[in-house]
Design a protein around this nucleic acid. Structure first.
Lengths: 111, 111
DNA sequence: TGAATACTTAGGTAAATGCCTAACCAATCG
DNA sequence: CGATTGGTTAGGCATTTACCTAAGTATTCA
């Protein structure tokens, strides 16, 4: 895994936008061509293409050109990577719960 | 839940940065004051403060001022929300697996 | 009280983001 | 072939982001 951190940067960045998240959801239902996807949004096509490119650059989406149409499909691996990171972060917090208790207690004692 | 989408925007945006992700990880081990946290980074303090403010604005972190120091702690709820969104996205993809098979098949048939 | 510590505010810059229009291919359709 | 359809490139613009330095304010220490 070369530069895991940069990869997470890109995935989270990609998901930090409602248009792109909606595309991910749409593609969850199955592959679709660009204009087909674009119909759901009130955006100029070049702007929309940029979003697709952001998704593709970070690997959340793959595409393939057939004839004059380009078909996109979801690639859930990066989604998993991001999910794993979050899970780990939360896990730390949870296993530290007792420590939190004693911290709050020590605060009280200092009063 | 007022404007769930905006909330996800902010959480994902917050996590799309290595410094902020590291802060989240650090706080997973327990609460810490600002300068204490800042020691792990080679950044000017005002710059670092901005990161903490981004984290706090989206609810990933809470803080409280005591005397002259401000103590931060992790708040894992938004993390959970983001995780849930991802889980749902992946779930769609998974339940659609058979449809993918038939799609690829139909592509082949068109050759 | 004066100095040190811990954070805050103000203001500035370079690069990235999100959007647009106009114009340009390339594959079909009539 | 000429027009249409589906996608792409180029270029521009306003806003946001990620950083910085300099100069505060507010506690606490000596």
């Amino acid at each position: 895994m070369p530069n895991q951190s940069l990869m997470l940067d890109q995935v989270f960045q990609a998901l930090a936008n409602p248009t792109r998240r909606e595309v991910v959801q749409l593609l969850g239902r199955g592959p679709a061509a660009m204009t087909e996807l674009a119909r759901s949004f009130k955006m100029a096509l070049p702007s929309f293409l940029q979003h697709l490119q952001v998704l593709e650059k970070c690997g959340l989406v793959r595409s393939q050109k057939t004839g004059r149409s380009r078909v996109y499909e979801l690639a859930p691996e990066p989604l998993e990577a991001a999910e794993d990171w979050m899970k780990a972060a939360r896990r730390h917090w949870e296993t530290r719960f007792d420590q939190l208790d004693s911290f709050l207690l020590s605060q009280k004692e200092n009063t």
